[in-house]
Amino acid sequence: MTITDLGLRPYPVGDSSIRRMALEARGLGYDSLVAVGVPPGDYYGVAVREGIIIAGMPAKDAAAKAKRAADGRLVMVRAGDNGFNRAMIGVRGVHLLCGIEYAHRHAFDHVIAKMAADNTVAVDISLAPLILRRGPARQKALDRYRDILMLSRKFSFPLTLSTHADSVLSMRSVREVSGLAATIGFDLDEIEQALAFAGSRHAGSTPVREVP
């Protein structure tokens, strides 16, 4: 099982170089990282894979961008309204729907949940709101995540856990991520699957295929 942290934004967006983040991630118990805007590679024994976040554009443009994304990159789409999410879940090449905590409550319903399960598109549970926010903002994020978790248990679409860190100070250890996920309601198996999803998708995207 490859434990992966997702959505990292190193320098110049953040204040830490990708090497420093990889060095920190190694100490925090991660095997690999998915970072935005950096070339893939291996730093200090931590595999870094390139990710792309598609946000702030109409569904048609977002779908075209997702299809254009090169192989090997993890394509994350920031959730929008219900119609946008429904359109993006069906697009080939989209791996992950992120930023669900910012979307409206009805932006992710049981229909999209079924589509996500059919297309094996994961929904990202970012722990950043739990770490950085306080009061009603954190309560709202917790509420949204519990709703997503309930839908995931019913429709069996994958979930991921991430920190979306832009600094080494925002990164959290696997133990802390597991603990925070447990406060949402994740059980141990769900936590393991969520942390391993990105790694398994990477392994599955290799060009070698079994031909019957």
């Binding site: 925090l28 739990l130 770490i131 950085l132 600094s167 080494v168 100070l169 925002s170 990164m171 959290r172 250890s173 133990r175 802390e176 603990g179 925070l180 406060t183």
Partner: peptide, 19 residues
């Protein structure tokens, strides 16, 4: 320990606590 992971600043400075 979980609460320590949510500490992000101290006296206006960005910090993190690693248990």
């Amino acid at each position: 320990a979980l609460a320590l992971s949510t500490v992000t600043s101290c006296a206006g400075q960005k910090i993190a606590l690693r248990t």
